[in-house]
Design a protein around this nucleic acid. Sequence first.
DNA 1: GTAACATATGAATGTTTGTTCATATGTTAC
DNA 2: GTAACATATGAACAAACATTCATATGTTAC
Lengths: 121, 121
Amino acid sequence: MKEKNEMPQCDCTIIHNDVIDRVRGEMPAAGHFYDLSELFKSLGDQTRLKILFALSRNEMCVCDIAALLDMSQSAISHQLRVLRNVRLVKYNKVGKVVYYTLDDNHVNEIFKQGLDHVAHQ
Amino acid sequence: MKEKNEMPQCDCTIIHNDVIDRVRGEMPAAGHFYDLSELFKSLGDQTRLKILFALSRNEMCVCDIAALLDMSQSAISHQLRVLRNVRLVKYNKVGKVVYYTLDDNHVNEIFKQGLDHVAHQ
DNA sequence: GTAACATATGAATGTTTGTTCATATGTTAC
DNA sequence: GTAACATATGAACAAACATTCATATGTTAC
């Protein structure tokens, strides 16, 4: 029989205090994790990945992307905003047409490593 | 006044059919986008990023991670399962203790590129 | 066998996210 | 000015997700 007021669970005899203390000291600032998670979150959606791949091949306007992916203009526009927010894409307005391109080529590197990982069996 | 039965919106005079057709031909298989999005989704969470960073510094058991991040053992265990599912971490059981490590070093590369991107202003 | 502990897991809950729909903004051509 | 069109955006809603809680599994030491 357990005593109910004696917290059980895993207040575990933390097995490796030395490691914990050292790694805690090496932890990047919280803000970095936040920014990184926002970046990867934006890559964690098939539609956005397809948009990024397409833009890695050619500059495209919103309608082009919508036609290519067979999705509504609105859906694409919303997703482009997400990609803009993390500075993965930038745009160039020409009259009423807005041309999107990749912002830099970190995306391509990340993409490549990612494909490597999933292909690797 | 618009006629209501004449679909408006953006059935747009798709401005660049040539580009669309070419890029469509270059699109990777749908499965690749799915796998990639699952991978990045798993990286799109601060807790999991912290776990991965910690493991990049040192092998750790579940309790170590929970203590380091000041979170419940259960929460960490759930997140580790997500990371296992995309093969970002693997484990080694020694008695009742389960030691986790990174599965390969694509993670480190992806991490680095990601940090580069967010640091770059 | 039992007690203690490290980890895993299912259900529940609140939050976040992707798409749709309706509509607004801004540009071009008249 | 108006009509037509490319894009953006707010609200709404369903689906996906992260954490908590309670509990199950599996191991060690007795």
